[in-house]
Design a protein around this nucleic acid. Structure first.
Length: 279
DNA sequence: GCCCAGGCAAACT
DNA sequence: AGTTTGCATGGG
C-alpha cells in the first residue's frame, strides 16, 4: 500500500479559503478532522489527507492535481463572489462568518446518493450511514477507507441488503436511484449541460428525490451554481434576512450564498442576533 | 420519554 | 391544490 505521506503534497493557493468551513458545512460527508487539524477522507475513489497552512492547501493524495483543482473549483473567482454577497447588507454577517466556504465539485452520483440519505436526517447520522455504505459496498482504497460505491454496485441489491447501513426508509430510494442511473432512465452525464429546471425534473424521476434533494445534488454534484436549495429552515431564515427574495445580482452564485447562509444560521440559531450580525 | 434532523410520498381534505 | 401524516433511526 502506498504511503500518502511519502508523496510530495499538492499545493493550492486559495485566498480567503477555509478548509474547515468547506469540509464541515454539510455539503460533503466523507471528511473527518484529525487531532492535528488535518482532514482525512475521500472524494469518489480518491483518498487524501488535506491540511491548511495560511492561504495554502496541502493535499496528500494519489489523485492528479487536475482532479483536486476541479474538486476545489479553483477556476472560479471566489473573491469576486464574496464581494458580491457581502455587498448585500443582510448577507454581510453570513459572508463574514462563512465566507471561506467554496462549493466543492463533487462526483454527481456521490452527491445524489448522499443527499438522498440526507433527507429528514442530521449531518452526524448522514456521515455514519455514508461511511457504512462505503465500507460495505465500496472498493478499498487504503488507509481503511473505501471508494464511494458506484450505482452498478447498488442496482442489483434489495432494501434488506442495505439494512446494515441503518438508512431506514431511504434504502429503497437509493436502490431506485442506482437502478434508474444504470438503466438509463436518468442520464446523469447530461445534467450539467441542461437548464436547471430540466435537470431538476430529470432527477425527480427518482423515487425519494424531491426538489430539495434534486437541487442539492445539482448544486454540489453537477455544477449548477445557480441552484438555491430551499427547505423549511433556510426558507424561514431567508424570509427574515431577505424578505424581497434573492437579489438578481446573486443569481449566478446563489448556491454559494445559500451555503454561507446555511452555515451561518446553523451556527447562530438566534435569528434576531443573526440578522443583527451579533453572532 | 421527548424532540429534532439539509424531505418526501401517500393519504387526506 | 393545498395540508397532514408516516416514515426508521440516532443524538441531544
Amino acid at each position: 500500500m502506498q504511503q500518502l505521506s511519502a508523496l510530495s503534497p499538492l499545493r493550492l493557493c486559495l485566498p480567503g479559503f477555509s478548509l474547515a468551513q468547506t469540509l464541515c458545512c454539510g455539503q460533503a460527508f466523507r471528511w473527518r478532522e484529525q487531532e492535528d487539524g488535518s482532514f482525512l477522507g475521500a472524494a469518489g475513489a480518491h483518498r487524501a489527507v488535506i491540511r491548511q497552512r495560511g492561504e495554502e492547501i496541502l493535499i496528500e493524495s494519489d489523485a492528479s492535481p487536475a482532479f483536486w483543482e476541479n474538486y476545489f473549483d479553483c477556476r472560479t473567482d471566489y473573491e469576486a463572489i464574496r464581494r458580491t454577497v457581502a455587498s448585500i447588507p443582510a448577507l454581510e454577517p453570513a459572508c463574514r462568518f462563512a465566507g471561506g466556504i467554496r462549493v466543492l465539485r463533487q462526483d454527481g452520483w456521490e452527491a445524489l446518493a448522499s443527499f438522498i440519505i440526507s433527507q429528514n436526517n442530521n449531518i452526524k447520522r448522514i456521515t455514519g450511514i455514508i461511511e457504512r455504505l462505503c465500507c460495505q459496498f465500496g472498493e478499498p482504497i487504503g488507509g481503511g477507507l473505501c471508494a464511494f460505491p458506484p450505482p452498478e454496485r447498488l442496482a442489483g441489491l434489495s432494501p434488506e441488503d442495505l439494512a446494515p447501513l441503518r438508512s431506514g426508509f431511504r434504502a429503497r430510494y437509493l436502490i431506485d436511484a442506482a437502478r434508474q442511473v444504470t438503466g438509463g432512465t436518468v442520464d446523469l452525464a447530461a445534467l450539467p449541460a441542461l437548464p436547471t429546471a430540466e435537470a431538476r425534473a430529470e432527477l425527480m424521476k427518482i423515487v425519494g428525490v424531491g426538489k430539495k434533494v434534486a437541487d442539492c445534488a445539482l448544486l454540489f454534484g453537477f455544477g449548477h451554481g445557480d441552484c438555491f436549495p430551499v427547505d423549511v429552515w433556510i426558507g424561514r431564515a431567508l424570509a427574515e434576512l431577505l424578505p424581497e427574495g434573492l437579489p438578481p445580482s446573486l443569481a449566478p452564485c446563489a448556491g454559494i450564498a445559500q451555503q454561507m447562509i446555511f452555515h451561518y444560521m446553523r451556527a447562530c440559531p438566534d435569528r434576531a442576533a443573526a440578522k443583527a450580525g451579533e453572532c
